[in-house]
Simulated assay, not measured.
Amino acid sequence: LKDGIAAFLSIVPVAGLVYTATWTGWFRSSNAYYRHWAESNPSAQWGWIPDSLRSLAHYHLEAYKFHQGLSADHPYEASAWTWLVMGRPTSFFYESPKQGTAGCELPSCTSAILSVGNPLIWWSAAICLGVLLFWWLGRRDWRAGAVLAGVGAGYLPWFMYPERTTFFFYAVSFEPFLVLALVYCLGLVLGRRTDALWRRRSGFYLVALFVVAAVLLSAFFYPVWTAEVISYQDWRFRMWMPSWI
């Protein structure tokens, strides 16, 4: 445990530097939002901190205050509890083109952009979180723990603000770690190099089947990711849950 805590503490400064580096454009700007706030708000207590860093800290504080108090109703708000099952994806665009317009040769057409993920990838990844939890606690695999930490850091804080208006697309902050969880489990399916040939071959076929299915399903959902004009019935055929409509 001590080694794990020490390793974590050694990573924190590096992570802080990497995060600060992502604000390079803001630092280099002369008129970015709150860029020169500290210059007009001197502080006796925190004056030893460079103005640029104090301004950045104030920017973060103001953003936190705004988002913490955001509680207006919205037709596409989605509780964090529903994100792992894609309970209420956000609709970014919806239009019903008239018959005879470009791409619409039927009485009823639809053009839409819905922030729904590939169900096979998303739901499988959600299930994989349970597998990683077992491998982390039972097998002490640090890789599983690292992926779970990434998911937890981007996901769990949202449960502290149940009254805040939230949307499904906020899950993009931890989506890469969901994909890593899926990759981890696919690696388990593939097996080890020392496994018997039949085991490796069976694992390969299963993983290949999964990848092919995911690609085909992506092609199926492509029209509602890119606002292609399709028939209304084809659009409804892709709305697998009533809450997606």
Rank of each mutant, 00 (worst) to 15 (best):
Y232G: 14
L70N: 12
S30T: 15
Y232L: 10
F174S: 04
I5M: 11
Y19E: 11
W198P: 01
I49D: 08
A63E: 04
S10W: 09
Y76I: 04
N118G: 05
V207G: 07
I127C: 15
E228W: 10
F169D: 07
V229W: 01
Y19S: 11
P119V: 05
E228R: 08
G4Y: 07
P50I: 00
A153G: 00
A72S: 12
G16V: 13
A112G: 09
F174I: 01
M160Y: 04
A80S: 13
A149Y: 00
F27M: 02
R193C: 03
S40W: 02
H74N: 10
G87H: 02
S173I: 09
A63L: 04
S111A: 15
L9R: 07
V131F: 03
T82K: 14
A181C: 06
K65L: 08
T194A: 14
V183M: 09
A80I: 03
Y33C: 11
N41G: 06
L137D: 02
L209A: 15
A78V: 00
A7L: 10
Y205L: 11
Y76F: 15
R28C: 07
T165M: 02
L84H: 10
G103C: 13
G87D: 00
V215A: 06
F92D: 02
S173L: 13
F134C: 08
N31R: 15
C104M: 00
V179N: 08
T82E: 13
E62M: 12
H36D: 13
G69V: 05
A149Q: 02
Q68V: 04
Q68K: 12
L182V: 12
V215C: 01
W123F: 09
L186Y: 00
V229L: 01
G203V: 01
I121C: 04
R54M: 09
V211H: 12
Q99K: 15
F92Y: 15
G152Q: 04
P89L: 04
W123G: 06
T194N: 12
P223Y: 05
H74P: 07
T20W: 11
Y19G: 06
L61C: 02
R200D: 03
C185L: 12
I245E: 13
A44L: 12
L180R: 09
T24G: 10
L148T: 11
F134P: 00
R35N: 12
R140V: 05
C109W: 08
H74V: 09
D234R: 06
L133T: 14
